[in-house]
């Protein structure tokens, strides 16, 4: 008998014309090979006819919806990829413009700015030298007149720094309650976010209250952990002379 794989290849149309013709002639001479060839042909036709393909429209529609979702995702990611630089540049510019506008239209410092900046202030003199004289020297150094600080409270320390390009002095005062911070802005300083209260302007820095007033061409800001009215009482006893 002829090799069954050859017979199968013939039935499947996998042989060249020449080889197919040769094999057909050989098969015709062999009953068993003929049976094999015809059986493969019959089986193939039967399988093809009895196992038909059919279209499942509902499932196909579901597939199309999934393709739609893929397209949607591609469109979004494509747009983000394409405009990422533009979007981020516009965003940064928006922030910069906002910051510039805020700076240009700002009426002055906010008390919180003072508090934050004062963390970087540097101490004046040694701790055993803390006295009105240190404050006096500093005021003279910045060219402010008068140069004296009048306060009934003892001075625990003093430090200086800059805010908005101006030199600022912080003096730590002590009374029977707790420490108080007095900021002196020679030449005056505008503040925003403060409300008028009994001859002072008051506001808050975190949990602390503050009062602000002007005296002798300077602005003073007194910060302490107590009510505004009591801060006002302390402020009445603090002035430049």
């Amino acid at each position: 008998m002829i090799d069954p794989l050859e017979i199968q290849a013939l039935a499947d149309g996998e042989l060249s014309k020449e080889r197919a013709a040769e094999l057909r002639a050989e098969i015709a001479k062999c009953q068993r090979s003929t049976a094999e060839f015809l059986y493969i042909q019959s089986l193939t036709v039967t399988v093809r006819e009895k196992c038909p393909q059919s279209m499942d429209r509902e499932l196909w529609t579901r597939c199309v919806h999934r393709l739609d979702e893929i397209d949607k995702t591609r469109r979004v990611t494509g747009m983000v990829d394409r405009y990422a630089w533009t979007l981020s540049t516009a965003f940064v510019m928006l922030i910069a413009v906002g910051a510039g506008y805020s700076r240009m239209h700002s009426n002055g410092l906010r008390p919180a700015d003072v508090s934050r900046a004062s963390a970087g202030f540097s101490s004046l003199g040694r701790s055993n030298e803390q006295s009105p004289a240190v404050v006096q020297r500093w005021l003279a150094d910045v060219g402010h007149v008068p140069t004296g600080l009048s306060s009934s409270l003892p001075i625990l320390g003093s430090a200086e720094g800059t805010l908005d390009g101006k030199r600022v002095l912080r003096v730590i005062l002590r009374d029977s309650d707790r420490n108080l911070a007095l900021y002196i802005f020679p030449g005056g300083q505008a503040f925003e976010g403060l409300a008028d209260a009994d001859g002072y302007r008051s506001g808050q820095i975190g949990d602390l209250n503050c009062v602000q007033w002007d005296a002798q061409g300077a602005s003073l800001l007194l910060v302490g952990d107590r009510e505004v009215s009591r801060l006002g009482n302390v402020a009445q006893n603090v002035s430049l002379r």
């Binding site: 069954p4 017979i7 199968q8 009953q31 049976a35 015809l38 493969i40 019959s42 039967t46």
Partner: peptide
């Protein structure tokens, strides 16, 4: 080893497959 699909002496019965 492969054997033929059809049995020896067997004539394929297309009608039966049908």
């Amino acid at each position: 080893a492969l054997e033929p699909v059809a049995d020896e002496q067997e004539a394929p019965d297309r009608a039966l497959l049908d």
